[in-house]
Amino acid sequence: MGEEVNANMQHPIGEPMNNGNPTSNQPREVGSDTLKRGLAQMLKGGVIMDVVSPEQARIAENAGAVAVMALERVPADIRRYGGVARMSDPALIESIMRAVTIPVMAKCRIGHFVEARILEAIGVDYIDESEVLTPADEEHHIDKRQFKVPFVCGARNLGEALRRINEGAAMIRSKGEAGTGDVVEAVRHARAILGEIARLKTMKREELYAYAKEIGAPYHLVEETADLGRLPVVLFAAGGIATPADAALLMNIGVDGIFVGSGIFKSGDPAARAQAIVQATTHYQDWHIIAEVSKNLGEPMVGINVSTLPEAERLAGRGW
């Protein structure tokens, strides 16, 4: 597979290629929960990769990524450079949108609905209201129901996940501790969310009311989650995933898919590692395949042990 294959495929952003069907009077529902959650459904079992350039986006697509997250800096560099981390330059995001045919996501700051409007205006496919960037509002998350574009949000536990869904999030990911290469926080958050759902399934109705209050989540979503036996939206793992084995670990714990941030392009051989993580995510219960794809990947990203991180440098505590 050459990397040039994507170049001639794109049409100008924001302009439907044809069959945009402007004259039809067939009723069309747009921006609904089915459509927003539906795109995340299509990404299930897949890997979403952080990229900072069109070249990296093509490497990710060629490796089999189901989507890319367009950023100026991966979380490991956000940590290194410090200062205020904001939405990326829209021109950079657009150049990444032109480079690949898979969905392109981008991050805005928690509560920064204007950054979100900008990302919607340029046509990104999903917005991550992300604790990896510096929060813009310490009290309010974005009212995500006002947007046509779907949102993904981070969560550390079920209450946080359901609060975000109540605000309109169409996909949830664990927060993990981004930019560390330490998978422990992603495991903690995935276990917390899935464990609480397992508990919900054993509760009687009257217990659900008390539980909803205890975790600070809207009752109707607690009830829906109990009935479904899972979140009403897709749940991915994110934060600190650096190896094929990390990805398969989270898949076996029970998430629907994987975000890899700094883990790929901060490693020795990004193309090989990206492919290996995709293979391990697909075949997450086939130990022979995971063993095979884990060979000769070069240096993984240099990690930071989360337990050595001072509280002020932890990102997962942002948002509530």
Binding site: M9, P16, N19, G20, E29, L35, E120, G123
Partner: peptide, 26 residues
């Protein structure tokens, strides 16, 4: 588009023909 497919059905498809996610509809 140069991508691997099964090439079984005698049709020509156009990918992402309606646009991006905000153009998705029911």
């Amino acid at each position: 588009h140069d991508q691997p497919t099964l090439g079984l059905m005698d049709v020509r498809v156009v990918r992402n023909a309606f646009g991006r996610q905000i153009d998705s509809f029911i």
